[in-house]
Design a protein around this nucleic acid. Structure first.
Length: 422
RNA sequence: GGAGAGGUGACAGAGCGGCCGAAUGUGACGGUCUUGAAAACCGUUGUUGUGCAAGCAACCAGGGGUUCGAAUCCCCUCCUCUCCGCCA
């Protein structure tokens, strides 16, 4: 939810943001019109209501002979009050509907445009030259199957396409990766949390996932619950409706959960292997901080993501995502993309978003300020490790004979194992 | 799943259909006292919307209803606790 007061004061900021996203600019003006309508109807109702309350109060004090007259007067007002209230409620509902459609205001400096208009901030690490080494890199599935670590066929048999089993070394590699990520998070002051993976509609809506990409989300109609696509959802909901204390610094949580995505729009993309699956596991950083600190915290989250990529020994690049490719709740987003040799391209491994006050407004997360008043906090999230990393790790560290060298930073999490070999 | 009890402000805990946004206690904050602290005493202490402001309005789990008027009466839903059953 954007700040309606700020929009009233300076609608152009909203219009600019919409334009940068390639979204509908007229939404801003429709919101302002609905806002003006709502406030005028609310004032009308409140005035009538105050009058009614005054008269109602006098009923009890009226003398027996006056009472019938006062009662009649009060009765006459009741219908009008109800009508005015209904009108004000309807206007509020309409305004809310429009407000909930409005995505977050993008931060100044975010590149304009769509998916392909990202800006590459830098490259890190060295890409292996397989030609020079004298062999063609296998793709992650071939390596994984060779190790007995990934089983797509049985995943499909049991659950359908885009489901997989991680077995033996595959399972151990994922656990190693996630444990390493959690340990780093703890070292940086995050509180580890294992979250629910089913959440209520208002929580899912509050995080901004039920907008344009609602068809990505699994819904269980019998119980009206949603399967989370990331523990960000459960961690954003954790303090919903609360006034949190940020006096001692930001609240940093590291969530561990399975994540579920319908991949409805994926078409025939990434059909092979575990690059894009319906269910995977992830360690996610989630931070509640002040509006002033949000941008600096965003940089820190990015740095911690990069630390993990270095532990996994992956060459990667960092991109500043274009406005049109931001989720509805993000004001800015950095992705780290690791090199995937078999594809000859970079693929997203981490994504960190600064949601400013957008989610906090929707979920009612506020802080107490020095002067005793309250105001929305800022929320941020970022990936520390996911199942997909296995793709990059297997491919970048493969050897000609099909074995895989374990990056040094992960060996301790694999019982000291230096290589994966069938 | 069955039976019962209950959900009120940061917490504990009152609350006859109108004088209840809500007693009282604790906590927190400010002050008096004190060399300092404790104790004692005095005062302050919910959120939101709207309005230039005074103010007005809303909120007592959530949603409907009755009434001139609902924290208080009725209905539905959710959650918590106790007991029983069932199943990991």
């Amino acid at each position: 939810m954007i700040d309606i007061k700020a929009l009233r004061d300076d609608p152009d900021v909203g219009r600019h943001s919409q334009r940068a996203r390639g979204a509908d600019e007229t939404l801003v003006d429709r919101i302002l019109a609905a806002d003006a309508e709502q406030r005028s109807l609310l004032t009308a109702f409140e005035t009538l209501r105050a009058e009614q309350k005054a008269i109602s109060k006098s009923v009890g004090k009226a003398s027996p002979e006056d009472r019938p007259a006062v009662l009649a007067q009060a009765k006459a007002l009741a219908d009008g009050v109800k009508e005015a209230e209904a009108a004000a409620d309807a206007a509020r509902t309409e305004l809310d509907a429009l407000l909930w459609q409005m995505p977050n205001i993008v931060v100044d400096g975010v590149p304009e445009g769509g998916e392909d208009d990202y800006v590459v901030l830098r490259h890190e690490g060295t890409i292996r030259d397989f030609d020079a080494e004298g062999f063609a890199p296998r793709d992650h599935l071939e390596i994984g199957e060779g190790l007995g670590g990934i089983d797509m066929a049985r995943g499909a048999k049991v659950s359908g396409s885009r489901f997989h089993y991680l077995v033996g070394l595959g399972a151990r590699l994922q656990l190693a990766l996630l444990n390493a990520a959690m340990d780093r998070a703890i070292a940086h002051g995050f509180l580890p949390v294992i979250t629910p993976t089913l959440v209520k509609p208002e929580i899912m809506a509050g995080t901004g996932f039920l907008g344009a990409h609602a068809d990505e989300i699994y819904h269980l109609p019998v119980d009206d619950l949603y399967l989370v696509g990331t523990s960000e959802v459960a961690l954003a909901g954790y303090h919903s409706g609360e006034i949190v204390d940020l006096e001692a610094g930001p609240l940093r949580y590291a969530g561990w959960s399975s994540c579920f995505r319908r991949e409805a729009g994926a078409g025939g993309k990434d059909n092979r292997g575990i690059v894009r699956v319906h269910q995977f596991d992830k360690i996610e950083m989630f931070v509640y901080t002040t509006q002033e600190e949000a941008a600096a915290e965003h940089e820190r989250l990015l740095a911690w993501e990069e630390e993990m990529l270095q532990i996994a020994g992956l060459p990667y690049r960092v991109i500043d995502t274009a406005a049109g490719d931001l989720g509805s709740s993000a004001a800015r987003k950095f992705d780290c993309e690791a090199w995937v040799p078999s594809q000859g391209t970079y693929r997203e491994m981490t994504s960190t978003s600064n949601c400013t006050t957008f989610q906090a407004r929707r979920l009612g997360v506020r802080q107490r300020t020095q002067d005793g008043s309250t105001r929305p906090v800022a929320t941020l999230n970022g990936t520390l490790a996911t199942t997909r990393w296995i793709v990059a790790i297997l491919e970048n560290h493969q050897r000609e004979d099909g074995s895989v060298e374990v990056p040094e930073g992960l060996r301790g999490y694999l019982g000291g194992l230096a290589e994966l070999r069938a």
